[in-house]
Nucleic acid binder design. Sequence first.
RNA 1: GGCCCAUUCGUCUAGUGGUUAGGACGUAAGAUUUUCAUUCUUAAAACAGGAGUUCGAUUCUCCUAUGGGCUGCCA
Length: 507
Amino acid sequence: MSDKPVRVRFAPSPTGPLHMGGVRTALYNYLFAKKNNGTFIIRVEDTDQTRFVPGAQDYIMDALHWCGIIPTEGPGIGGEFGPYVQSERKEMYKPYAEQLVANDKGYYAFDTAEELEAVREQAKAMGMPNWQYNSVTRMSMKNSLTLPADEVKRRLENGDPYVIRMKMPRNQDVRFEDMIRGWVTVNTNNLDDKVLFKSDGMPTYHLANIVDDHLMEISHVIRGEEWLPSAPMHVLMYEAFGWEAPRFAHLPLLLRPDGNGKLSKRDGDRLGFPVFPCDWHTAEGELYSGYREKGYLPQAFVNMLAFLGWNPGTTQEIFTMKELEESFTLERVSKAGAKFDPEKTKWFQQQHLRAVADEDLAQMLIDKFGATADKTKLAKVVHLMKERATFPQDILSEGAYLLERPTAFDGQTVNKKWKEDSSSLMTEWKSKIEEITSFSAAEIETTFKSFITDKGLGIGAVLPLFRLLLTGQGAGPSMFEISEFLGREEVIARIDAGIPAVEALKQ
RNA sequence: GGCCCAUUCGUCUAGUGGUUAGGACGUAAGAUUUUCAUUCUUAAAACAGGAGUUCGAUUCUCCUAUGGGCUGCCA
């Protein structure tokens, strides 16, 4: 282990929107960097030109920004190790691939895609489903190991298409220590001669990744478990180049909540929850919904994601980003895949929503949810509704009657609670309201209590009627606080308007 | 099929060679509340199976099972 400065990277491919598993990988990298006074880098791995999706890179940067996962180096941000998009680094890779060939760690291969497919087909027909280009099969293929030197030279000079493959050594145990899983050992006989440099002039992931991690002085590679099988090969590549390998940490996968398998694009809208941080519109006009647009707070989303495969070892579950930055360690990341739970996600959301100050939430409703009311007034609405809301917009929809007179009245409450004498009872209560000296929740409550005592009635026989007239609802926050909020004039107006409306319903 | 990784309540997880195996979400019941939500209390709920090591294994080892990943000129 070295004491080099911590530099970590998140390396997405712009092949579509980043899903929450990717966001979590980015988050863990970010947290690890923060915790260790390190640098968090974003590097876009767009070496597959055929899978490039316009807009995906912007989406990724935007989504991470929303989450508060802010890189210190990356595309559009800069840094002394740029460029941070691999297609812009294209010319850098070939010499490294050539170097491997020169050192007998790699070789040129001229087999076409069609030829390879034919070989695989043939092998399958003979009962060998896993044909690989490796130390035994490569001797019967068309490459610089089997072809005469002058023919190889001629083909290269002719511009014949070729790839550069890794020359995987035979029967050698490769060991490396994963920070999450401990020692992992793989025999090279199970590894194939991976293509490092493609015939289109681009490197594959394996080459670009190792070269860039080296050039960018990456100290820790924190990535998804799907990379674990190829990690030994990467270790071998570092050896072949004579470079010190970074430390590896392979994160457990995010699994789908129902049944089996890793979380995928389609799961979200099928199961009724987002798998993406933000909305994504496909070129075909389809929409994959995102947490942001559903009204989730980024801090809730991040908190939930952080706990999928990590825990602080204490009973604290609600964390701000700052707290996560202070508490995160790779040692406490679990090994097994995690199914995420939409219900618990909601719970995180509720907890974080409550933690937002009333004024801030009011401002958010104005900025992002189209609220038009005065901010001070809105803050009071927030205060009254916040505890029973899950999303910011719930405050607006469930508390709509606080800002506008109700036009509909809950039928069930009308049927159950509104009696013959309710009109006169409420009219009488209205006259009491007119007499209250200071129109505060406490005063209203005192007056109300003495009113029902005088009438010999229970709270349950009277208050629901009052609520019905003022809000149209059968349930909600304290009626006394609602009354204070509305003000005497409005309360009286609503009683006047409500009585005939409910009576009409009763017919 | 081959290789690799994993396995504690339904879910996320804590934990230990000897514990009443802890917490959270969800579920159920109760209390509080005019009501809904909140809050509080309580309950049900787990060490995949089999060998071995050991005085003793959920914990260590092996096997099996199950799940997952990889097996492309994708990343």
